[in-house]
Design a protein around this nucleic acid. Structure first.
Length: 545
RNA sequence: GGCCCCGUGGUCAAGAGGUUAAGACAUCACCCUUUCACGGUGGUAUCAUGGGUUCGAUUCCCGUCGGGGUCACCA
């Protein structure tokens, strides 16, 4: 068969020589151990936690080694395209401090582009044409129906499904048959002529999983679809070679197609990159675990965390604790150190899939937020509120000096111990609502109404906003004693039967009256922040209720 | 179903041929405390299973079971 002629017929025209591509995209001038990694999303615009997980690993490895992280858009499937998706992806990752050095929509760093696969059609076609010339690729005219009939037959016969060996009908078409089909205008795809033998197994070293057993590929996979656009496999090989990727960290779901990729790299004469197949993040689904899926888990999309007001830093810390198990200890030991200083190792990544644990994220969020200054907390809340908050919440920011006081109190700043009341911006805004006129009677009173009113009346009688905390509390104790409650906790515990209750019951009346809830930070400080007028009004209201 | 990956408490996990099998989250109890939160102390709870190898296996080997992934002109 005249492959030269076939190649010209299938992919007509002049293409740059493969050598010229090598020259145009030379190996990068980077330090010896530098790794070039990439993120290659399809432009659905949807990113979830699992993507962030892989993204962080890629980012850390690249930047820690003095290498490069670039963004490539895998838009070979039109059905997946969503407008504005690329910007959305960049923005979503930027929120978590993942920045690209190069790639799609990254100004001034496009030497290895274009980074949209649709714009690389010529390059793929040049390589495909070369494969045809060499007899390593051929046209296939099988229809979808024929293919699925083949699959059914193979399934029925308990054979491996796919287009391979004797089942690869078009593999051995004669020259006449091919041209006849072409002349008839039949649509076709270009398939790889695989030289592999599925009975051959070999071990392959995966950077994360260690040595894995791999079966040689014998599938004549499609490399160019009928519209002339490459499949993922082919584009992966061509792009990652030409863009000089040194390390491919990707989801475990790709492990199964690794043999295809290896054969492609080999047949194209490319040096194979290193691979690291990362276990997927799992989620509990009823009784069983399952991989995070964009279909079923919209609540795990990155935008969900942003909307809920999780601090990006906290999310990143959580991801890192899952990624490298000694990170947590390191971070605890050096809370001030930037995350970048942590010695991230791909070899420390877990071989098994981790279950996403919201409790753990919440715990991390609490401690990370508690480490913020009041000013930092304020600007974090502000940013959230003006994107996702209610109008009422946005109004909290009209008096930022006041807000700052509230936050300092709620975070325990200046006290001996930091409080850890805040988990997310959304939750925090709800938590501080009572400082802004949102009096909701969240909790009831433990004592009867008569006692309640007696406490409140007595409090109002002696209340002096210039009292310091000690004086203030002494008065509360006084009220307790007058009404038959133990002024000292110790006394009450020693002999509970002797009292109607303790000073804590009395304090609770005041707390509920003023804040609407049984639990709050220091009450005296709250009254200080409120000021006399507001405190008195609030208590008067409580008595009337 | 074939093939591949994985299997230490509820979760994330360290670990090593001989350990009281770390730590964190969750949970429970107590302490601190005017409430809550924080903090402190302590507790419950783990080597999937069967068989080898070995003086000794959770660790090494094989089978079983369980979980996951994958079998497209989707990535």
């Amino acid at each position: 068969m005249d492959f030269e002629k076939l190649a010209e017929r299938l992919i007509p025209g002049e293409y740059p020589s493969l050598e010229s591509f090598e020259k145009q995209y030379p190996p990068r001038d980077l330090p010896a151990k530098a790794e070039v990694t990439r993120l290659a999303p399809s432009p659905t615009g949807f990113i979830h936690l699992g993507n962030l997980f892989v993204a962080i690993a890629n980012e850390r490895i690249a930047h820690q080694s003095g290498g490069t992280l670039y963004l490539r858009i895998e838009d070979t499937d039109l059905k997946r395209k969503v407008d504005g998706a690329v910007e959305a992806v960049i923005a979503a990752l930027d929120y978590f401090d993942i920045r690209f050095d190069e790639g799609a929509e990254i100004d001034g760093a496009n030497a290895y582009g274009p980074y949209y696969q649709r714009r690389r059609a010529e390059i793929y076609r040049a390589y495909a044409k070369d494969l045809i010339r060499r007899g390593r690729a051929y046209p296939c005219f099988c229809t979808e129906e024929e293919l699925s009939a083949l699959r059914d037959e193979q399934t029925a016969n308990k054979e491996i499904t796919g287009y391979y060996g004797k089942y690869a009908k078009c593999r051995n078409l004669t020259e006449e048959e091919i041209y006849a089909a072409l002349d008839a205008g039949k649509p076709y795809v270009i398939r790889l002529r695989s030289m592999g033998d599925a009975s051959h197994k070999f071990t392959f070293h995966d950077e994360i999983k260690g040595d894995v057993t791999v079966t040689e590929n014998d599938q004549d996979v499609v490399i160019l679809k009928s519209d002339g656009i490459p499949t993922y496999h082919f584009a992966h090989a061509v792009d990652d070679h030409l863009m000089r990727t040194t390390l491919v960290i990707r989801g475990e779901e790709w492990l199964a197609s690794l043999p295809i990729h290896l054969e492609l790299f080999d047949v194209l004469g490319f040096r194979r990159p290193k691979y690291g197949h990362n276990c997927s993040l799992m989620k509990m689904d009823g009784e069983s675990k399952r991989k995070l899926s964009k279909r079923k888990d919209p609540e795990l999309s990155l935008s969900f965390y942003r909307q809920e007001g999780y601090h990006p830093f906290a999310v990143k810390v959580y991801m890192l604790t899952l990624l490298n198990s000694d990170f947590e200890e390191w971070h605890r030991k050096f809370p001030e150190k930037p995350l970048e200083e942590f010695p991230f190792r791909i070899s420390k990544m877990s071989r098994s899939g981790a279950l996403f644990d919201l409790d753990k994220l919440n715990d991390i969020s609490k401690t990370e937020l508690s480490a913020l200054s009041a000013e930092e907390m304020l600007s974090f809340l502000r940013e959230w509120a003006f994107s996702y908050g209610t109008q009422k919440e946005q109004a909290y920011f009209t008096d930022e000096a006041y807000l700052l006081k509230v936050l300092s109190l709620c975070m325990g700043i200046g006290g001996k111990k930091r409080r850890k009341d805040f988990i997310t911006a959304k939750q925090a805004m709800g938590e501080i609502g009572y400082f802004f006129g949102d009096y909701v009677q969240k909790d009831g009173y433990r004592v009867d109404i008569a006692t309640r009113d007696a406490v409140l009346r007595k409090f109002l009688e002696t209340y002096d906003p210039s009292d310091d905390a000690q004086m203030w509390f002494a008065k509360v104790k006084q009220i307790a004693a007058e009404l038959g409650f133990a002024a000292e906790m110790r006394d009450y515990k020693a002999n509970p039967a002797a009292y109607k209750g303790s000073v804590s019951d009395v304090a609770e009346v005041l707390r509920v009256a003023v804040t609407g809830r049984a639990n709050s930070p220091d009450l005296w400080t709250i009254m200080q922040i409120f000021g006399e007028a507001r405190t008195r009004t609030r208590i008067a209201h409580a008595m009337a209720e």
